[in-house]
Design a protein around this nucleic acid. Sequence first.
DNA 1: TCAAGTCTATGATAAATGTCATATAATTTC
DNA 2: GAAATTATATGACATTTATCATAGACTTGA
Lengths: 228, 228
Amino acid sequence: MSKCQQCIIREFNTLRSLTADELKTMSKEKDVLNFKKGDVIFKEGNAINGVYCVKHGICKLSKLNANGKEQIVRFMKGGDMLGYRSILSDEPVTLTVTALKDMEACYIPKKEILDAIKENPKFSLDMMKTVCGDLRDANASLSNMAQKSVKERLADTMIFLKETFGEDKDGYLDIVLTREEIASVVGTATESAIRLLSEFKKKGFIELTGKRLKVIDEVGLLKLSQGF
Amino acid sequence: MSKCQQCIIREFNTLRSLTADELKTMSKEKDVLNFKKGDVIFKEGNAINGVYCVKHGICKLSKLNANGKEQIVRFMKGGDMLGYRSILSDEPVTLTVTALKDMEACYIPKKEILDAIKENPKFSLDMMKTVCGDLRDANASLSNMAQKSVKERLADTMIFLKETFGEDKDGYLDIVLTREEIASVVGTATESAIRLLSEFKKKGFIELTGKRLKVIDEVGLLKLSQGF
DNA sequence: TCAAGTCTATGATAAATGTCATATAATTTC
DNA sequence: GAAATTATATGACATTTATCATAGACTTGA
């Protein structure tokens, strides 16, 4: 079984603040889980008893609204911690998490995290920074969602996906989404997203090959996202 | 000078987890500040070196977007803590805070808060719960903003204002907002907000007397907010 | 491999929302 | 308290966005 102490991904998240001893106990208590593309890791309303430390893969965090439509609230990838909000606030999860690529994640029981918070102020503060960062981003998204047009938001999304997930050797985004999922990030109807993607392609901002997507003119997209 | 130990408001926020000793030091270090309606407490981009524990009054937290429009992200009232995100993540503030009513708030230097986090795990965990709660709310707002119509969001806002700020003896909401501010909460144009308020009034959901606002049919508004 | 299902694309149209113009009401300032 | 400013209200219209319909492309599974 892999040891947390040797896990590289740990350097990218709050677990970096743990002591060697704490890591050892965590390593003993953790489970290594695998998920296939499409697997649901947990669902809105579920009670979970641990956090998931993502090693590889990508997942989406979404909320189902009254009329059955999915709103993607954010993505997570290697290094991110899933479910910490629920654990920390001792509430059921409020988002559904679905794998978008095959994933490997370590399940760390609640107790380990809460103990570490009690014992290790550095970890505690680091954890707070993570939540605070998420909160800052959520507020920024809220403001954008409220005030930008669909076109501007789609441009934002293209840039965000490139910056967050990078490109493969051919320059295509290293994340594959359906048009419906793109629409659900942007907060619009699938048809509207499709239409605007075609427009972006026509204007030379992006390239489309099936579901594969390449950002060609990031500066242009940036300008567009700011309303020019 | 008032003592934190005897402050009732403290019972409503994370400071309730502090020990008597911690409260004593905090009391010594804090400043009591007063703000008039309209005063800006801090601005997007400012560096602050402490948090504000609100005793009385109401303020709005907003973000200015590229085209100069204000987006109200949330409100705070007695018991809430302002600026903690910036302190915890050691970043400038990302929101502008403006008093909507005369306010009294205690300014607590950063050091006191960070020390308490290091020393007192209960406070630390309580603090985390607060941030996590804010994050949950922000995600929910994001999803609503993306998927609900302006009319639905306005209905939500009316209910939210009633639940959060209550009513005076005449049944009017205990918060006074301009139409522009209402629009800025909902995320729409001022004229659209005005039009829909008139419609709500005509349909008997609310009563309008100048800026004073009364919710008459909360159930009706709730149904409307869910798309009926 | 083909049939069924899903996804993407696009036109036509409807509905929602924003913008501009204008008028009146309320508030502020001198 | 009158003039100036700001806030509210509403009409007319433009623009954006959603919805419905249809068709072809792509996947998937028997």
